[in-house]
Simulated assay, not measured.
Amino acid sequence: MLAIILAVLLAFGLQLVVWKCVVLGISYGVHLLSGADVPYGLIALIVFGVWFVILLIYGLFAYGAHRLERGE
């Protein structure tokens, strides 16, 4: 069970890293092509917020499935 929990946590961590790299890479490309100032901190905060909401939804889904399995 511990291995499953660790694997899920590592998968979510990797997902966050990939999302941030892709979004920040795109915003850096926009900065290079257009010369506009891009607020990287704000972009990273938005990506983290979206990722955290998805994480909460998955957690609530898993909790509901667990309660349903137990018959509560």
Rank of each mutant, 00 (worst) to 15 (best):
L55S: 12
V22D: 03
S27N: 04
A11H: 02
G59F: 11
G41K: 13
L2I: 03
A65V: 03
L10S: 07
I46N: 04
Q15G: 11
H31A: 07
Q15Y: 09
V17R: 10
V18C: 04
W19K: 08
L32Y: 02
G25C: 05
Q15K: 06
F52P: 13
G35I: 02
E72K: 10
L32D: 05
R67H: 05
Y28V: 06
L9F: 07
I46K: 06
L10A: 06
G49Y: 08
G13F: 05
F48D: 03
L55P: 13
W19M: 09
A11M: 05
V22E: 05
I54L: 14
F61A: 11
I26D: 01
V23C: 10
I43A: 04
G25K: 01
L16E: 06
L56W: 15
L42C: 15
L45V: 11
M1W: 03
L42S: 14
V23N: 12
G29N: 00
V50I: 12
K20L: 15
L55A: 13
Y58M: 15
L9Y: 01
A36D: 07
L56M: 12
I54D: 15
V38S: 05
R67W: 04
L33P: 00
F61V: 09
Y40R: 15
V50D: 06
Y28K: 04
R70I: 09
C21K: 13
G71A: 03
Y63N: 09
I54S: 13
Y28L: 12
E72G: 08
G29R: 01
G49H: 08
V8K: 02
C21G: 10
L42K: 15
V18L: 11
A11R: 03
G59C: 10
L6Q: 05
V8S: 01
Y40L: 14
Y58E: 15
